[in-house]
């Protein structure tokens, strides 16, 4: 049932459009402060682009490009940075590194325009793609197919 990827036409078009899809995801997530969009929608688009790679080139190719521990690391790093940035914003830019970071620098670094949507995009994108990979690898026919 599962082929090793699709035809040459689909692969070529995917190679061309993949960068634009990722660029659009970043645009959507960073545009959330001035227009419709946000980190969640951008993250889902990132995950969809990797799902696209996986459907077009087969799962070995996609998993060779993006290992499972990379996904886990990206999700965890995004979550930790998001937690830290939210803590900074709750405390008005003082805690926890207030001793050796200026308040204005801290507020500018962990702002809600760029940092929070970007972390949310990382978490949602890597996490949803990890869920997709886990569900695909869990399904029976793929397991028999690959062994």
């Amino acid at each position: 049932m599962i082929q090793k990827g699709m035809s040459v036409i689909v692969k070529t078009v995917t190679k061309i459009t993949l960068g634009f899809i990722l660029l659009y995801a970043v645009y959507i997530s960073l545009n959330g402060h001035t227009g419709p969009g946000g980190g969640f929608a951008g993250g889902v688009i990132v995950a969809l682009s990797f799902v696209h790679i996986m459907l077009v080139f087969g799962k070995e190719m996609a998993l060779k490009r993006l290992r499972s521990y990379v996904l886990r690391g990206l999700t965890c790093a995004g979550a930790l940075i998001f937690l830290y940035a939210a803590t900074v914003k709750f405390s008005g830019g003082c805690v926890p590194f207030g001793a050796f970071l200026e308040k204005s620098v801290s507020c500018r670094l962990f702002n809600s325009e760029i940092t929070l949507p970007f972390c949310e995009m990382l978490i949602i994108g890597a996490g949803l793609f990890a869920i997709f990979v886990a569900l695909v690898l869990l399904s029976k026919s793929d397991r028999y197919d690959s062994e």
């Binding site: 969640f40 886990r72 999700t75 979550a79 998001f82 937690l83 939210a86 914003k89 709750f90 809600s112 929070l116 972390c119 949310e120 978490i123 949602i124 996490g127 949803l128 990890a130 869920i131 886990a134 569900l135």
Partner: peptide
């Protein structure tokens, strides 16, 4: 922002649970 933090925590927990 606390709501958004809780949403992200829920997503993160779901991802960790599924994986």
């Amino acid at each position: 922002l606390m709501d958004t933090l809780g949403e992200v925590a829920a997503i993160f927990t779901a991802v960790v649970g599924v994986m």
